[in-house]
Amino acid sequence: MIHWQNLRGAAAHRWQRYSALYLAVYTPLLAIYVAQLPEQNSLQNLIGNLFHYCIFGYLSVIAYAFLLVHLWVGGRDILIDYLPRPHLNLGLNLYLLSLFAISLNLGWLIIDLYPY
């Protein structure tokens, strides 16, 4: 369980910066990469191609992890500012839960698409 009083400042700030930096580099690379791919549209192909070159696949996994970090830090800061204090813990925990849920869902989707 998350409690707002235990949330740290400097570490979160640092991770926020690292993840932003990584995503800032990764996103254009992703765009270039996708643009180079032969014409295809399905999500299955897209994800499959990402993993075509191993290295870019790993970079993408890391990017996704950083995206989660970035979403968490940014989201929790916004929640701290805007949510009424009595609902803050509930909000933070629900938000974290939803990030997990999305990750799980995505993971399940990938496994579903590539059941090897």
Binding site: W4, Q5, L7, R8, G9, A10, H13, R76, D77, I80
Partner: peptide, 10 residues
């Protein structure tokens, strides 16, 4: 003492 989510980083 400033190192919390609710202090200086706001």
């Amino acid at each position: 003492a400033l190192n919390s989510a609710t202090s200086i980083f706001r």
